[in-house]
């Protein structure tokens, strides 16, 4: 059982993991170098809890208690008592390696060190570590509160004990785990590529329109959303970045080649829902 969880980075993912953990009765130290970001994260958690109470999914006692379990901190040394530390900072290998180097010095040798990276190699992040066997990937999905899945990613030198403790931790947070080898895109981001890539090619080849492709995939395929609707929701910039990253990591394997339609749309600022226009137009409510 995990009693103390450390989280590094109070962005969307870090705050989401903190929220899920606090609701599962785990004490959380939420670290960020920036005090303002920490305060904003706590505000977001508070707002989300409030919504949960309004919808009747949570009680106010539950949320008050859970909120009290999240301890915001700006000193890395405050993570020293953690059973597991999950890192959710910017996707930059140098920053992550540096961070874990400091963390190794500040935590017990039994502490599991996990990264929430979606695009970097766990093996590479662990390469500078003294104890690479206690490194593991724990890839949560956004929004963490709603998405049930955590990909447990095994680096080249991750020990079976570390993997098991990461699995147990994710389960304690109410998540379903799958185990993946440390390969580009792990499972989801990799296997989902053709959903977008083929749709873009079908559009380019004029086989059918955006609306028709979405309609076919939804009604004939039984998917909740068509590929273009989903790209608009995810954000075309985010989607393109994931594709590019996997394409590069596989040394240009043509199956992952990004499409020029998407690149042009990103360049023109048609990023999807968040920009008010992507493959579809969106009107602001009210």
């Amino acid at each position: 059982m995990i009693k103390h969880l450390g989280i590094i980075g109070a962005g969307t993912m870090g705050a989401g993991i903190a929220q899920a953990a606090a609701l599962s009765k785990v004490e959380v130290v939420l670290y960020d170098i920036n005090d303002t970001i920490l305060r904003q994260a706590l505000e977001r958690v508070k707002t989300d809890f409030k919504k949960g109470v309004e919808k009747g999914k949570l009680t106010s006692e539950q949320t008050t208690e859970a909120f009290g379990r999240i301890h915001p901190r700006t000193r890395l040394a405050d993570l020293s008592h953690s059973d597991i530390v999950i890192e959710a900072v910017i996707e930059d290998l140098r920053i992550k390696k540096d961070l874990f180097k400091h963390l190794e010095a500040d935590t017990r040798p039994t502490t599991i060190l996990a990264s929430n990276t979606s695009s970097l190699s766990i093996t590479a992040i662990a390469s500078a570590a003294r104890y690479p066997e206690r490194f593991v990937g724990m890839h949560f999905f956004n929004p963490v509160q709603r998405m049930k899945l955590v990909e447990i990613v095994l680096g080249q030198r991750t020990s079976p004990e570390t993997a098991q403790r990461a699995i147990d931790c994710a389960r304690q947070l109410g998540k379903t785990t799958v185990v993946a080898k440390d390969t580009p895109g792990f499972i989801v981001n990799r296997v989902a590529r053709p959903f977008y890539g083929e749709a873009l090619r079908l559009l380019d080849e004029n086989v059918a329109s955006v609306e028709e492709i979405d309609r076919i995939v939804r009604i004939e395929g039984g998917f909740a959303m068509g590929p273009f609707e989903l790209m608009d929701l995810i954000g075309l910039d985010v989607n393109l970045a994931v594709t590019q990253s996997i394409h590069e990591q596989f040394f240009g394997e043509p199956r992952y080649r990004p499409h020029s339609i998407q690149k042009k749309m990103v360049e023109s600022g048609m990023l999807g829902r968040k920009a008010g226009q992507g493959f579809y137009k969106y009107e602001k409510k009210g």
């Binding site: 799958v178 499972i187 989902a192 998917f223 909740a224």
Partner: peptide, 10 residues
């Protein structure tokens, strides 16, 4: 499991 839970495929 990953594709059903991670990206909502049927």
């Amino acid at each position: 499991t990953a594709m059903k839970l991670g990206t909502n495929h049927p």
